[in-house]
Design a protein around this nucleic acid. Structure first.
Lengths: 147, 147
DNA sequence: GCTTGACCTCAAGTTAGGTTGAGCTTGTAG
DNA sequence: CTACAAGCTCAACCTAACTTGAGGTCAAGC
């Protein structure tokens, strides 16, 4: 038995909890990579599991696939990313994440800062201004933007 | 001059920072309400601004319009909601928000709990299990779900 | 009384993030 | 050596959340 077996799509799907179609999709978007067998089937190295896990966690907090892909591009090409590499990545997201955390806390704590205050009638509220910027960001569905 | 003037869509759009088309859309989705003038134009009472502000803040942290609408349905029908009413609403969202906050912190702090740990190779990680559940939640675009 | 800008409705288009299905190939177990 | 599950590709479909456009109405100024 080989010590470090490569994984098939089905295996990755099962272990990561995402659908095969989603894995295809992530690959098309450049978020994960595979090589092919002689018979044109995908084979993944184990670190794809880590990538997928990060994708899901990041998505869950509102980071778009495009941003995740961008962040992933900062990972080393040749070798399997180390713990350090991943930490760098999350550092890059840090500011955006910090902001989002504070937004969430405000909402959780009774929207005190911006709903309970008088700023809504005027336009110097930090939240409202943030939104104004968002409002100009093009068409289609709006997603949370980090960084 | 009337002391509490009603607002036109254009005015609401300007003061809230969202497009007129978005206001129409929110109304169609039951998030805000208006009555019509003799000439069939929308008129809004002032508290629509508060609603819209909440919509935007909630959206920014990943709550869907459907969920916001559901929460709004718990607001009093007849009178203008008080500060207390809004607080109740955010209390209802609290658990979901708490969860999301902790996810964000994990991501921010180097993903220590679930990416940096060994749980990714196995399936007892709280994060991963969360995703497994999510994976079964139907078709279409996935959104963050609170509550 | 007419022009001009703000409104109205309704249908169609857009982006993100996938899923579904058809039609065809691979690989493994019996 | 033959099933038949698992893969592959590609096009079509789906939801959320809006925007855009066409075609028509309303109202305030000149």
């Amino acid at each position: 038995m080989a010590p470090v077996r490569e994984l098939t799509v089905g295996q990755v799907a099962m272990r990561s909890g995402v659908a095969v179609s989603a894995l295809h999709f992530y690959e098309a978007r450049g978020l994960i990579r595979s090589h092919r067998t002689a018979g044109n089937q995908r084979r993944y190295s184990r670190d794809v599991l880590r990538r997928v896990a990060i994708i899901r966690v990041a998505q869950e907090v509102g980071i778009s696939l495009a941003e995740i892909a961008a962040a992933f591009r900062s990972l080393p090409e040749g070798r399997t990313p180390t713990r350090e590499d991943w930490n760098l990545l999350s550092t890059a997201w840090r500011d955006g994440l910090d902001h989002k955390i504070s937004q969430l806390k405000k909402l959780r704590d009774g929207l005190t800062d911006c709903i309970g205050c008088g700023c809504m009638s005027i336009d110097k509220c930090p939240l409202r201004n943030k939104e104004d910027r968002l409002a100009r960001e093009g068409t289609g569905a709006r997603r949370l933007v980090v960084g």
